[in-house]
Simulated scan of single mutants.
Amino acid sequence: MIYKHYMKRFFDIILSALAILVFSWLFIILAIIIKGTSKGPIFFKQKRVGRDKTYFNILKFRTMRIDTPKDVPTHLLTDPEQYITTIGKFLRKTSLDELPQLFNILVGDMAIVGPRPALWNQEDLITERDLYDANAVRPGLTGLAQVSGRDELPIPVKARYDGEYVDNISLMKDMMLIVKTLGSVLKHDGVMEGGTAEGKKQEENTLVASAVIQEYAASKDKAD
């Protein structure tokens, strides 16, 4: 409890500030490339759901053209490839587009580890997270759902993993998830673009969702 309510935020501040200093050279290089290869701003801001369902603007390096439909998750676009810039493909594949979120962490909008922040209009995900009290913590740069399937997971399973994380927050758990995230990034695990790819896994994911939720319900019954 001490870590969850006090030390976690302290570590977030220290680690995000240190990471910003260490990767400042990379920020500058990527900013120059983005600005020089496509029209539009360097950073992409988007309204997201934060702790206790408050709103904040998440920061990312811009990876898509400025005419891309707003507030639509990439995997729901019919043909997202047509909107992604050349450098954007590289940034998304390596997850370097997420680096500016270190500033969100530093100011307190996010944590290093936690549920990934939902879009303000993703009511289905927000509602599912309410079932597990997963909206009551700061959203994270990475989380249990991220290392367990990322874009491949259907919403009920994402929310279930988010709830599992919230029930078991600890320093050791956070360290393990950070290490697993680095491995997932290097292997590009769980990254999907477009509804076609998602559709191919829909039936399989539905079965997985059912099994995971039943397992969670059973564990809750035992605890009660």
Score class of each variant (00 low, 15 high):
Asp71Met: 15
Ile87Ser: 08
Asp109His: 12
Arg129Lys: 13
Thr74Ile: 15
Thr94Met: 09
Phe90Lys: 11
Ile58Cys: 12
Ala118Met: 04
Phe56Trp: 06
Asn104Gln: 10
Thr63Tyr: 01
Val107Glu: 08
Thr86Cys: 12
Glu128Val: 01
Asp52Cys: 12
Ile84Val: 15
Phe61His: 01
Pro115Leu: 01
Leu119Phe: 13
Ser95His: 14
Ser95Lys: 15
Glu98Gln: 13
Tyr83Cys: 05
Asn104Glu: 02
His75Cys: 09
Phe56Thr: 08
Arg65Leu: 04
Leu77Glu: 00
Phe90Gln: 12
Met110Thr: 05
Gly36Pro: 00
Leu59Asn: 11
Pro100Asn: 02
Ile58Ser: 05
Phe61Cys: 06
Arg116Ile: 10
Leu96Gly: 09
Pro80His: 01
Asp67Glu: 14
Ser95Thr: 12
Asn121Thr: 14
Lys53Pro: 03
Asp97Asn: 13
Thr78Phe: 05
Ile126Thr: 03
Leu96Ala: 09
Pro41Trp: 06
Leu102Tyr: 05
Arg129Gly: 02
Ser38Tyr: 07
Lys39Ala: 12
Lys47Asp: 13
Pro80Tyr: 00
Leu106Trp: 08
Gly88Glu: 01
Lys60His: 07
Thr127Met: 05
Ile105Thr: 03
Thr127Ser: 15
Lys93Arg: 15
Val49Gln: 03
Thr68Gly: 03
Lys93Ile: 01
Gly40Cys: 04
Thr37Glu: 08
Asp97Met: 07
Leu77Gly: 06
Lys60Gln: 03
Arg62Cys: 00
Leu76Asp: 11
Pro100Trp: 00
Asp67Ala: 11
Arg92Ile: 02
Phe90Leu: 15
Thr85Arg: 03
Gly108Leu: 08
Asp52Arg: 11
Val72Thr: 15
Asn104Asp: 14
Ile105Gly: 04
Asp130Met: 06
Leu91His: 09
Ile42Met: 07
Tyr83Ile: 02
Arg129Asp: 11
Leu59Cys: 13
Lys93Cys: 03
Gln46Lys: 14
Pro41Asp: 04
Phe56Cys: 07
Lys70Asn: 10
Asp124Met: 07
Thr94Val: 05
Met64Cys: 07
Arg48Gln: 01
Lys45Gln: 14
Lys47Tyr: 06
Thr37Ile: 09
Glu81Val: 02
Gln82Cys: 10
Leu77Trp: 02
Asp67Asn: 15
Asn121Pro: 13
Phe61Gly: 05
Gly108Trp: 03
Asp130Asn: 14
Phe103Glu: 07
Asp109Ser: 08
Trp120Tyr: 15
Ala118His: 00
Phe44Ser: 01
Thr54Arg: 13
Lys35Val: 10
Val113Gln: 04
Phe43Ser: 05
Lys70Pro: 00
Ser38Met: 07
Thr127Gly: 00
Asn121His: 14
Asp67Ser: 11
Gly40Asp: 01
Ile105Met: 09
Leu59Tyr: 15
Phe44Arg: 12
Phe56Leu: 10
Thr68Gln: 03
Arg65Pro: 00
Lys70His: 13
Gly40Val: 03
Thr74Gln: 14
Glu98Arg: 12
Lys45Cys: 05
Ser38Arg: 06
Phe61Thr: 04
Thr68Arg: 05
Ile105Tyr: 04
Phe44His: 09
Glu123Ile: 05
Phe61Pro: 02
Met64Glu: 01
Ser95Gln: 13
Thr68Ala: 05
Gly36Ala: 15
Thr63Val: 02
Tyr83Phe: 15
Lys35His: 14
Trp120Gly: 00
Asp97Ala: 07
Asn104Met: 06
Ile87Arg: 02
Leu102Gln: 08
Asp52Met: 13
Thr37Gly: 09
Gly40Arg: 11
Ile87Trp: 01
Arg62Leu: 01
